[in-house]
Design a protein around this nucleic acid. Structure first.
Length: 584
RNA sequence: GCCGAUAUAGCUCAGCGGUUAGAGCGAACGACUCAUAAUCGUUAGGUCGGUGGUUCGAUUCCACCUAUCGGCACCA
């Protein structure tokens, strides 16, 4: 039995706030999965943090005339606020700009180096004399040798799709200032993926990975088919983790951001353990011999880093658990069009959270989750699903049952003998419970939600047929039985819904007379960053009773006064939001 | 260009080598009134993108075509 579940979530790049695509792609599914696992009584460690290094952050800082720290502090703060508002239960959401992370990165680099998995090589880099710096290929443009398109980028021509190398461009220049680009030798460290490839293949083939999503496997095998090559892990940059060992000629070079970002899963685990006062506690989730599983929640653009590069690094490092599953999501479109942050065609989370309750967003993003293929956010559908599913089917079910119970019996009534209708319903719920459990376990959250909502409909049918509001006038015992059964059902369904809608579930849990937490929430705390300034982290106390089972509600329990779980949205919302979006 | 994904009811999507292809929403009609004008029932609606092939049998497998989308590596 895998009692220790590591929930690793993609590290957001700290150069802009979250949009709904980030939530749908990684943070929300990760949180739902973590909440489900905790309710099953398993030990969950959920980590991530802000990815603070790399060229775009440096450039953003220069553009504003501020330090990189200013940029990352701004967006790290924004990330924390969104995650907190959405109720994403990180054990630790930290950042890569910490002494802890620098130390872990240095350790992994040095260990890989000592084992011969890192080598040095001279490469040719695109260099801007005007800016006196090397440029990533994407910041170089010129004339495409294939189609003569004048604005082909260094990594790819947008017109014909060809091109691999900026040196092939005619009259290459920088996209930053338009000045010419020259090519200079530059020495770098490389991760020897070719050397790690056999071990990587062995790991991939060591077990039947049918449970991986087909797209994840597809991407991975495409990479392997072409064979693995060394990958540069340092860059000519001044912002990032320094190259360990004070190597001559590397003083003005830094660890390349992709290399240090994936290490974050590990370094954040170490940091979490230190914060708890048990510095070795992380081992339970990272010991390959232990009962553990690591799940990596990411967007599809990140697949090779998590199924190839990070596993290869771990294999090279040695004695650390590799990913068990990498449930990568596809992309979320917006009103039928691909989201684009540069064209501001996006729904920004700070904006959304200012107007809508987190559970509404959580519900809709799960119902329309891009699990198997790209999906779409539509405001009309958001309103429709909220009103007809959340409010009418589920919220109303809970409300009507609680109201009848409270008004007629003042609490959980004592049932008499169950009829065939009662046992049939209870059986349906029990079978459904098992099916939903399987779906959560397999990270099929969209289906899990759909199944649970279907069970709520079954409960509504039962009430229509049994008519307890009528029966109570002629046969109080029978009405008591029906209401008892209905209360058990909504209590049970509330547990199935709780990973997806924790705020509403906690409310209902308390209305049902419970005093404990079923859906805890994260909190913001503060740590010192390497410069001595305070930085926020997201963390929390999530120890809860293992309530992943049918309701154990007993007669005589007193209920708290019912209140609606969700409010209906006005029909004008869809049109208003669409107008707001198009006005940008 | 190469690789891959997707094309199913008005809309959003499930599904799958085999009886009359499903759900939700939307539409029409009816029931009910405990509940947030919520709920429940009934009905209408599809030659499952096109062509060809494999098969006793294909929406489901294969090939090609068309359309849409994504990836193509040193980009985070």
């Amino acid at each position: 039995m895998s009692e220790h579940i590591l929930v690793s979530v993609a590290w957001p790049y700290a150069n802009g706030p979250f949009h709904v695509g980030h939530m749908a792609g990684a943070y929300l599914p990760a949180d739902i999965f973590a909440r489900y696992q905790r309710l099953r009584g398993r030990q969950v460690l959920m980590v991530s943090g802000s990815d603070c290094h790399g060229t775009p952050i440096t450039l953003a800082a220069e553009k504003e005339g501020v330090t990189p720290q200013t940029i990352i502090n701004r967006y790290h703060q924004s990330f924390i606020e969104t995650l907190h508002a959405m109720g994403i239960t990180f054990d630790l959401f930290t950042q890569t700009y910490t002494t802890n992370h620098y130390a872990a990165t240095t350790d992994i680099f040095e260990t890989l180096q000592s084992k011969g998995y890192i080598y040095r090589e001279i490469a040719i880099g695109s260099y801007s004399e005007s800016l006196q710096r090397f440029l990533p290929d994407r910041f170089v443009e010129g004339t495409c040798p294939n189609c003569n398109y004048a604005k082909a980028r260094g990594d790819q021509c947008d017109k014909c799709g060809q091109l691999r190398d900026p040196k092939e461009l005619g009259s290459p220049r920088s996209t930053l200032d338009g000045a010419p680009v020259i090519f200079r030798d530059t020495e770098h460290f490389f991760l020897d993926l070719a050397k790690l490839e056999p071990a990587l293949r062995e790991w991939l083939e060591s077990t039947d990975r049918d449970y991986w999503r087909s797209n994840t496997m597809q991407f991975t095998q495409n990479w392997l088919r072409e064979g693995l090559h060394g990958r540069a892990i340092t860059r000519d940059l001044e912002w990032g983790v320094p190259v360990p060992g004070a190597v001559e000629g590397f003083a003005d070079k830094r660890i390349y951001v992709w290399f240090d970002a994936v290490i974050g899963y590990y370094s954040a685990s170490l940091e979490w353990a230190k914060r708890t006062g048990q510095p070795d506690a992380w081992r339970k989730w990272w010991d390959p011999a232990g009962a553990q599983r690591g799940y990596y929640f990411i967007g599809k653009d990140n697949i090779p880093f998590h199924t190839i590069i990070w596993p290869a690094m771990l294999l090279g490092y040695g004695d650390r658990a590799l990913p068990y599953d990498v449930p990568a999501n596809e992309f979320l479109n917006l009103e039928g069009q691909k989201m684009s942050t540069s064209q501001n065609w996006a729904l920004w989370m700070p904006d959304i959270m200012s107007r809508y309750e987190p559970d509404l967003v959580r519900y809709y993003l799960t119902a329309a989750a891009p699990e198997g293929r790209d999906s779409n956010w539509s405001w009309a559908e958001f309103v429709q699903r909220t009103n007809s599913e959340l409010v009418a089917t589920w919220g109303n079910l809970a409300n009507r049952v609680l109201t009848i119970a409270q008004r007629n019996f003042g609490g959980v009534p004592t049932p008499s003998d169950l009829t065939a209708a009662d046992t049939t319903l209870l059986n349906t719920i029990e079978v459904g419970f098992a099916r939903v459990t399987e779906l959560y376990e397999a990270v099929k959250l969209r289906s899990a939600l759909q199944e649970t909502m279907a069970l709520a409909q079954t409960a509504n049918q039962y009430l229509s047929e049994q008519e307890p509001w009528k029966v109570v006038k002629v046969d109080r015992d029978r009405a008591a039985t029906v209401i008892f059964v209905a209360l058990k059902i909504i209590d049970t369904l509330n547990r199935l819904f709780s990973p997806i809608m924790p705020h509403a579930s906690q409310k209902l849990h308390q209305m049902l007379g419970y005093d404990d937490m079923i859906a805890p929430q994260p909190q913001v705390e503060y740590e010192l960053d390497p410069d001595g300034a305070q930085r926020p982290v997201l963390t929390g106390q999530y120890a809860i009773a293992a309530r992943w089972q049918m309701s154990e509600l007993v007669p005589g329990v007193s209920l708290r006064d019912p209140a609606p779980l969700f409010r209906k949205l006005d029909d004008s919302v869809a049109a208003d939001e669409l107008a707001r979006l198009q006005a940008k």
